[in-house]
Amino acid sequence: MKGFILSFKSEFYKSRKTLGFWAAILLPLLIVLLVFFGFWAHPDKTANLPGVILWMAYAGAISNVMGILLLPMYIIFIAYSVNSIEHKADTWKTLFSLPISKWSVYTAKYLYALFLVFLALLLFYLFTLGSGNLLAMINPKFKFHDYNINIFLGEEYLKLFLASLGILSIQFLLSLVWSDFLKPMGIGFIGTIAGIILVSTKNDYDYLLPYAHPLMALGSLIKHNNAPVIGIPVLEVDLFTKEIYVSLIVGAAIYIIGFFIVQKKSVK
């Protein structure tokens, strides 16, 4: 356990000056700022909407951009950046000749990539809430204060996080095996496009493709038995839909396979 904590700290130390780490902060900041200014500059379109509808429009503008394309692309980049630090410096063999168990070294790297995805989604959540409330303070016509979306939005981002575990594991493995960016990026991009096509054509087996999971997670966000009665939806997240289970299983399986691959690969 100590070896794991030390390795995790070292992952942070190594990455803290790289774009891989800063992307986790800059991406949410940038997207939220864009949507924030969009709403702020054109209050006529959305002001005076009921709180719940306004929140859905505002948070949805942010999370839909994320779920469809940005989240998979961000995961592809994070998985690459965490591994490329070692590829570039040719340090896999050094890491594995330290007096620290190999599982600790590998797990720390995997969980650090996971942590960066979690951090980005957490910041999306916090920035969305913060900027929405700020907007209501600047312009009282925005009725954000009428509705408390904190729990719903938190669960939404938690679901997106769980839905991204499958992609992260696959991309982590690809970036472990290949030191260049193009191969994992190309495969990830094709997977993402295939995911969009499968989901938009309502394919029966779309839940089996991890790249479709974030998009599906957003689509299956609200419990079906909570259909709006009189135009105002009841916001309650259906967290564990079947694509989430697939994502968790794929994530765990590939994490274990990756360990055996990295051992063989690292020491050529």
Partner: peptide, 8 residues
Amino acid sequence: QPAIYAHM
């Protein structure tokens, strides 16, 4: 060759 992180 020595394993060194070039960005550090």
